[in-house]
Structure formats: C-alpha cells, structure tokens
Simulated assay, not measured.
Amino acid sequence: MNNQIILGVLASGRGSDLQSIIDAIENGQIKTKIGVVLTDKPEAMALERARKAGIPAVCVDRKKCSTKEEFEQKLVEQLKKYNVGLVVLAGFMRILSPYFVNEFKNCILNIHPSLLPSFGGAHAHRDVLAYGVKVSGCTVHFVDEGMDSGPIIMQKAVPVLDDDTEETLSARVLEQEHIIYPKVIELYLAGKIHVNGRHVTIDD
C-alpha cells in the first residue's frame, strides 16, 4: 500500500468507471484519494460525479485549445497541480501524444471494452458483434503512444450471446469493468504490478 500515490482521472462522458473507483475508495478497497477529475467536455457527467464526491473537477475544453499540444499541456499542468502519481483513463476518448505519455511513463492506466489486442478503437462492441466472435470482455492496460496498444495487465472474458445488441453486451462488459479496474488500481498502489517490455506480472 502506498498512500502517497494520488490518482488523477480523465473522463469524457458519463463516468461510470469513475464512479466504480470512487465507490472503491469509499469502501476502503483503494487506499488513496482522487486528486482531480479532468474532462475534455463541459457537459461530461463525470464532472458532476466528482463534485458530488467532493473531488476537484476541471474541464479542459479541447475546443477552446488551438492545438493538441496546448490541450495536453493544460491537462499535465492540472495533474501536477494536484500531485497526481497515477493517471487513470475512464472513458477518455482521446489518444494521448508521446509528450503526455512520457510525462507519466508507466503511470497511465486505461480500460477498454474488448479483449485486446482484438477490437481496439472507439466502437468495440459494434465491431465484436459484426465479426461474430463468441467471447468478448474488457482489458486493463498501461497506456503507450499507440491506440489501445500498451502492455496488458488484466482481462475478464464475457460471453457474446446470440441475441446481443451493442447495448446488452456493453452492459454486461461494464459490470466486469467496474470489478477489475478498481482491482488493478488496488494492486498498482500495493506495488504488486511489474512491467518488463510487453509483459506484466502481478505478485500473489
């Protein structure tokens, strides 16, 4: 356990993964705090979830930044202002540049709603159903300069049913996201996750 690693959460939408992390902190599973929640959209529900939990919530509106560099510099400025040591992407719908990734090397987590490396990108459930696979799920991984391409930490499989829609599949995968994402954060804070190239090991 390391109480000194403060979380910074980046979200773009409704913030259900954020809520699972807030809940895990409140019930004692995750033994640290969220220093700040950042969004790129002023209407993101994640802002309201953060404020209800008493967490500083800041919108860095991408549309008001003239370049991606300016946008990311403002994100980094906010994260450093709140002494963030682990960046957690929770439905943050932007690919981060090498500049941002290098500012928090091996300290950025993301969760993706498929079993990577299959079905990366923004439309995982649609692509899963279109391809006809029988098993999908979710993946927690470290973030590198690519899209959904960093070292994989933990995965959970979810069966794809014959009558699934994007909505029904998404709902079942989301249930598992809310279990494994807080678990990975818990393990990270306890110093039990180790990265060697593409391979991640977890201590018992």
Rank of each mutant, 00 (worst) to 15 (best):
L7R: 05
L38C: 14
A44N: 04
I185W: 00
G197Q: 08
F100P: 08
M147F: 13
F100G: 02
D61G: 07
N110R: 12
K68N: 14
S16H: 01
E72M: 13
G132F: 05
Q4Y: 11
K74D: 13
I55N: 01
F100C: 04
G35L: 06
F92W: 11
A122Y: 03
Y82W: 11
E77K: 14
Y99Q: 10
A44T: 08
G121N: 11
C65K: 11
R14Q: 14
R62I: 15
G28R: 07
Q4P: 03
V37C: 05
V140D: 02
V101W: 09
R62G: 06
P159Y: 00
L174W: 08
E166K: 02
F104Y: 15
E186N: 06
K192C: 05
H199P: 06
Y188T: 02
P159M: 03
I193E: 00
L96W: 10
F71Y: 11
Q155I: 05
I180W: 01
A171D: 14
H125M: 06
K33V: 14
A11C: 15
A11G: 11
L161S: 09
P56Y: 07
Q4G: 06
H112L: 10
I30R: 01
N102G: 12
D61S: 13
N3P: 13
I179L: 15
Q19L: 13
G54L: 11
F100A: 03
N83D: 15
L79E: 10
D127Y: 02
